[in-house]
Each structure stands twice: as structure tokens, then as C-alpha cells.
Design a protein around this nucleic acid. Structure first.
Lengths: 183, 183
DNA sequence: GTTATTTCTTGATTTCGATCAAGTGACTTT
DNA sequence: AAAGTCACTTGATCGAAATCAAGAAATAAC
């Protein structure tokens, strides 16, 4: 049932069977229809959510009311607003289900509790860093696309060009040309 | 003695007098001469350091062996490598004393201990987020400079143009022209 | 099945910032 | 004081990506 999320946490922390039981005992399964929000603007991110099925998009509206995509998530990845979670501050963006989706999540409260029980859980902090690896802002459009293709090809297969372009910080036209060049 | 750092933590967390005593009791004062490293490449950031006097520069060498400045710190700010600390991963950059400097620091171990003693300390996590506010990568050179001028004018007064330009992701020539235009 | 709408591609033009280059002034070093 | 280095400025040119614009292809709506 929780196979994928168990595999994920095992890859970050050295957990005993008992630890894993404690962990899964605190997980909640949540279903979101396309368009529903996992996190709204100004809400504080209180959960670590692991996407079991579907996909999510994190974005905000700039002054010009364009949607700027800040993150894209697919199956078997952690869907967390990093800054809102760590600082327990109001989020600047929304996280929206891009398709009908299912997540399993654990609250910040339960996470603290687990760390208190077993220090091994502390290593899960790496998830916040490792999972947020994104193409570097200084790279050229082609480099950014190749980095994404290398690190997270699922995103490219799953989301339309305009969201990927926004996520990579370029226009759809530029991304289209990069693709044409690579092909 | 620890006035500035006490003021800083009070601004992030609601701490009792006892909490503050526990905190300061674990602080260590370290002096670094200009050029000495607070954190080296591949080291894991194990400390939260608060700059009491002096200034620091965080940077790495790119493939072309240019020094890319990723952060600049002056008095009364927290000098921490965010990603290395949170994930307890090897740092990709150095943090170097830019002048003769003094920091007070607390170890990750002691920080955990304090959180165990009093949950109020958990709110200090905000420091990692709030302090890392940086001019947005998508802004124009002028906007980036004005954002920095607004949020952290001390940096502009303290560091030479080339490091500020690198930090803001532009060439020294461009920054010079931006300054000329604003004046 | 036809019409809309959205998504993507392709071309022409423009623009902003990088690069290349030279020069000035301040500060060291000897 | 002369020579050298360093920090910054200013000008000219270039290039990559944005913008503007139009059309093709795919998808949705009626």
C-alpha cells in the first residue's frame, strides 16, 4: 500500500522496521481532483505530501497576472513548499493538482514526534534539499532543458510546453526551438 | 556580550529568559582572520554562525574557474549554508571571512537539544528562510540592484562591485551602468 | 462533423545585457 | 616619484533570447 513512499524514505534514512511502522501509522491518504489545491497562497505548509498518483503544479501570479510555474511534480516525488514548510511562513504560491491525484501525507507535528522517538528520522531533512534540485538559473536554455531531461524526464512527458517553459524560465517559443534543435 | 544574537533569535521565536540562557550557554565565539574559511567545499555545515563583526563571502568556482559569489554577509546576520545544513550534505561552496571577523555559533547537535528542551526553539527554522531572501533571478539588473538596496544596503556599502555583480548574476560593467543610471 | 480553442511551431525583428576594449583614478610597492 | 596593480567607468559591438506575428496541428465544444 505504502510501498513507494517507504522505498523513498528508506533511501534517505537508515530506518528500522519499527521506525517504518511508526511512520506509516501516521500517514494519511488524500485524493484531490484536477484543479484542487494541496496548498493555497498564504497558507502555511503543514504537511509532507508524497505523490502516489497524478501530478501537481506549484505556481504564483506575478504583478502582470501571468502564472509563473515554480515547481512540477509527478508520481513518487515529495510535494512540499520548501520555504513555507521550513520557516512555517505563509506560502507565496499555490500547489494545484494538475490531474486527479492521490497523495499520502504526514504532518509536521507527527514528523517532530517521530524525530523525538528515533533520531534516524532527522535524515529525512535531505528530502527538502535533494528533491528541490532544479536546472540552474545561469545555464542557457538548452542546458536547462537537458538538465531537466536528465534529472526528471517524467516532467517533460507529463506537462504541456508552456508550463515547462515557465518552470525553466524561458518563453514557450524558446523551448520549442530548443526541442527542435535537439531532435 | 551576546546582545545582537539574542535580539535576533527573539525576533524569530518567543523565548523565555530560561530558553535564552540555555541558548547562550551553548554559544561559542570564534575569530577568523581575513581569508580564513568558516566552511570549506565538501564539508558539512554543522553550525549556525551569527556574524558579530566583519563580513563573509560564500562562493564556488565554476568550470571556467571563475569565482561565483552565492552569498554576502555582514554584521548581525546568520552565516549558514542553507542546503548543506538542512540536508547535512557536503557543501558545494566555501564561506570565507572577507575581513577579520568574529562569529558566535551553535552546533546542530546543541540546536536539536534545545528544541527537545523547549519547542519554542523550533521557530528558529525561519532564520534559514528569511535570511536567504535574495533578489529574484527573473528580475532585470536594475530591479535586482534596487531589491538589494532595499533589503540589504549594508552589502552594497561593504563589498566591491565585482562581488556584488557576481552575487546579483550580472557583469561588473552592467552593475556599473545600473548605478550610473540610478544616480 | 464543423467550429472554436488551445498548443505548438516557425519566421522576422528588436532589445537587453555580455563581451571586447580602452581609459581614469586610487592605492601599493619599491 | 615611478611603476604596477586594482577597482571602476564608459564606449562600441555582438549575440541570444524576448517579442511580435502568423500559421499548422491537435483537442475540445457544440
Amino acid at each position: 500500500m505504502f510501498d513507494a513512499v517507504i522505498q523513498s524514505i528508506k533511501s534517505y534514512a537508515d530506518l528500522s522496521e519499527k521506525d517504518i511502522k511508526s511512520f506509516t501509522g501516521r500517514l494519511k491518504t488524500v485524493h484531490l481532483n484536477k484543479g484542487e489545491l494541496l496548498l493555497n497562497v498564504n497558507a502555511v505548509c503543514q504537511q509532507w505530501a508524497f505523490c502516489v498518483q497524478g501530478s501537481f503544479r506549484e505556481y504564483y501570479l506575478n504583478d502582470n497576472l501571468d502564472e509563473i510555474t515554480t515547481n512540477l511534480f509527478t508520481e513518487n516525488s515529495w510535494v512540499i513548499n520548501h520555504s513555507s514548510f521550513t520557516g512555517q511562513l505563509p506560502s507565496k504560491c499555490k500547489i494545484e493538482a494538475f490531474e486527479d491525484s492521490e497523495v499520502v501525507s504526514i504532518s509536521i507535528h507527527d514528523l517532530h514526534h517521530l524525530i523525538g522517538e528515533s533520531p534516524a528520522f532527522f535524515a529525512l531533512g535531505k528530502i527538502l534539499e535533494v528533491d528541490s534540485t532544479r536546472p540552474s538559473a545561469t545555464a542557457t536554455p538548452e542546458e536547462k532543458y537537458l538538465q531537466l531531461l536528465d534529472q526528471n524526464p517524467a516532467i517533460i512527458q507529463r506537462f504541456p510546453l508552456k508550463h515547462i517553459a515557465s518552470y525553466l524560465g524561458m518563453t514557450p517559443e524558446t523551448l520549442s526551438r530548443v526541442r527542435g534543435k535537439i531532435r
